[in-house]
């Protein structure tokens, strides 16, 4: 079975810095593989170990994105595809078009695995857009997967229900983070990852036909985290009484 897994080199939101005016310094911000993407890689590797085949990691992003692709290779993906594009465009139409085009070039896939969303922007649009563009079936928010040669069965984690579905192949599947516990690569695997083949493609070569609809990023500013940050000290009883008192004064509790 040919399995592709899409990973994103996401902004490490914990490391994000701001200029004095409160604007985030996105250029040069530290990046990391999207937290949920690891679950997608893990799911892909488990499919391979059950039914055999190849796992191809695919990423769209700047030169830095190679790090996340290498992490997928270290976890166990067989080869990688890196679509070089300007990073952090916040445009799922573009990302999905590039992923779909590169997947078409990279081989015939039975299964394309993605995370439910990226940990930095979490729009949840790229996986179903890729499915729509490739004309594949789509199963979103899977927490359990079972794959046979012709079909995938999944349990979908929806807000109010758990839904069991069967989908023909090829299919795009997005997995939720409770789907599995991602493995940690060993030092040897990390070193071996650099020897695995990575094909590099330029975005403009994939989207020569006009590209996709533009998204312009207007203002960006830090969410005000204007909190009082008052520690209530004293014995447990004293601190608890002070808190209840403070909350009553704020008028946020009616008891």
């Amino acid at each position: 079975m040919n399995v592709a897994v899409c990973v994103k080199h996401a902004v490490d939101e914990g490391e994000l810095r701001f200029d004095p005016a409160g604007r985030p310094l996105i250029e040069g911000a530290a990046g990391k593989m999207g937290a949920f993407d690891k679950n997608a890689v893990e799911a892909a590797l488990r499919v391979r170990s059950e039914v055999g085949g190849e796992v191809v990691g695919v990423t769209v992003g700047g030169a830095d994105a190679r790090k996340s692709l290498k992490e997928a290779l270290a976890m166990g993906a067989d080869r990688g595809v890196h679509v070089l594009d300007e990073p952090h465009l916040l445009n799922p139409s573009r990302t999905s078009a590039l992923l779909a085009a590169s997947l078409r070039e990279a081989g015939q896939f039975d299964l394309v695995l993605c995370a439910e969303g990226s940990s930095d922007t979490y729009s949840g649009l790229v996986p179903p857009m890729v499915a729509e563009r490739l004309g594949y079936a789509y199963v979103g928010y899977a927490r359990k997967l079972g794959v046979t040669a012709s079909e995938v069965r999944a349990e979908r984690s929806l807000e109010e229900s758990i839904e069991s579905v069967a989908s023909p192949l090829p299919a795009v599947i997005s997995v939720v983070s409770e789907a599995n516990e991602p493995r940690y690569p060993t030092l040897i695997q990390i070193m071996q990852a650099s020897k695995k083949p990575v094909a590099e493609v330029r975005a403009q070569d994939l989207l020569s036909a006009g590209g996709t609809h533009s998204v312009t990023i207007g203002s960006m500013f830090a969410h005000s985290t204007d909190r009082k940050r008052i520690f209530l000290e004293g014995t447990t009883d004293e601190a608890a009484a002070k808190l209840v008192d403070a909350l009553r004064k704020e008028g946020v509790i009616s008891v």
């Binding site: 939101e13 994000l16 985030p24 609809h213 998204v215 990023i217 207007g218 830090a222 969410h223």
Partner: peptide, 19 residues
């Protein structure tokens, strides 16, 4: 965006889908 640390305003031409 960025796990709630940043508020961004994005603009796209009409017609458009918005979630």
């Amino acid at each position: 965006v960025y796990a709630g640390r940043v508020s961004a305003t994005l603009t796209s031409p009409l017609p458009c889908v918005v979630t």
